[in-house]
Simulated assay, not measured.
Amino acid sequence: MAATTPRPRRRILWILIAVVVVIALAITGAVIAGALRAGQDDPTTAPSTSSSPEPSKSATTDAEPTGCLGGQNRDADMLLTAQADAPHTSNGAVEVTAAIVRWMYRAPVPAPDEIASVEGELFSDQANAQFRDLASAYETSPNPSGGIVEEGRDFYISTIPGVWHLESYTDDTATVSVGGGYVIDGELSPQLRSSTTFELAWERDAWRLVKGESPRPTQELFSLGTTFTGGC
């Protein structure tokens, strides 16, 4: 199958700490379609390299992640609803990760009062102070795309073309990768995709954010991951 050669990968400092990166690739529709089919065939098997993490055998099978838990909006209510509704399962952790990505990576960025309304619930007790300080992070890096989207243009990450991969799981911890598509000025980009990896912990009866991890390369995640059943 012929495909346009992807642009060189760009590692960009994300808004929280250097370990959370978005890599934009110019991926043709044919490449994306083939990648998603491959992910559906074998959704939780990492590439055959010794350094790649593999999901725990204890991962629970339940309702497949929709990528839209909490509703269509990208606000504090959506995020907190997703946290409250997500079950204590691996797929529940995936849903919360998708909700965090949808809420966090957008422009205009969340207002200070909205950030304040979620900080107490969003973060795990294990998260360090720098990682928790979203207001300062947005002030330092007001464009969460790291330059992928031009300054002054509205954008958000959609899970409609998105995928997920469970990197690791125990009863109380999960590391999840989520891939999404950039929606710029209301239009879904046919080329720009993102890759984000978060570690979560089950605390106080909900999945909460511990830290960001170095994400998989975007093209690798889209070839490996499982498509969301809905997306928004």
Rank of each mutant, 00 (worst) to 15 (best):
T229W: 04
L25W: 05
M1R: 06
L166G: 08
L192D: 15
S158N: 03
S189M: 13
L122S: 08
N128I: 05
K211P: 14
T60I: 08
V109S: 10
D113Y: 07
M1W: 06
G147T: 07
V149F: 01
S90M: 03
A35T: 11
F198T: 15
E167W: 10
R102T: 04
A201G: 13
H88Q: 05
S117C: 04
S214Q: 14
G186T: 05
F131N: 15
A99L: 00
A26P: 06
E54Q: 08
D125I: 11
G29W: 03
T45Y: 07
G34I: 02
R208T: 13
T197V: 14
A3G: 05
N73P: 01
R216D: 15
L36T: 14
T196R: 12
A127W: 13
G180T: 07
L79S: 04
V22K: 02
P217E: 15
G120T: 11
T196W: 14
V19L: 04
V178E: 05
V96E: 05
E139Q: 09
V163Y: 03
P87G: 07
L134H: 03
G230S: 12
Y169S: 10
D42W: 00
T196N: 15
S223Q: 15
L188P: 03
T28P: 03
G70C: 01
P108F: 01
D171I: 08
P65D: 13
A129Q: 11
V183P: 03
F131C: 07
L166H: 07
G147I: 06
F155P: 02
L122C: 08
S90A: 05
I15T: 06
G225E: 14
V101T: 11
A206G: 03
V101A: 05
P217Y: 10
N128T: 12
S194K: 10
L221V: 14
T5L: 00
G34V: 05
G92L: 00
D85A: 01
A99W: 01
P6K: 11
A107W: 08
V19P: 01
P65Y: 09
P110D: 12
Q126E: 14
L224P: 09
S58V: 12
P215H: 13
D62M: 01
I17F: 12
Y138F: 08
R208F: 06
P161N: 04
F155D: 06
D77E: 07
S158I: 02
E167D: 11
L79H: 09
F131A: 11
L221W: 13
T226F: 14
R37G: 06
T28C: 02
Y138A: 07
L134I: 06
S117Q: 09
P144I: 12
G146Q: 06
S214N: 15
P112F: 04
L13D: 09
S158D: 01
T170H: 06
A59Y: 12
T226Y: 13
T4Y: 09
V19Q: 12
V183S: 04
V176C: 02
G67S: 07
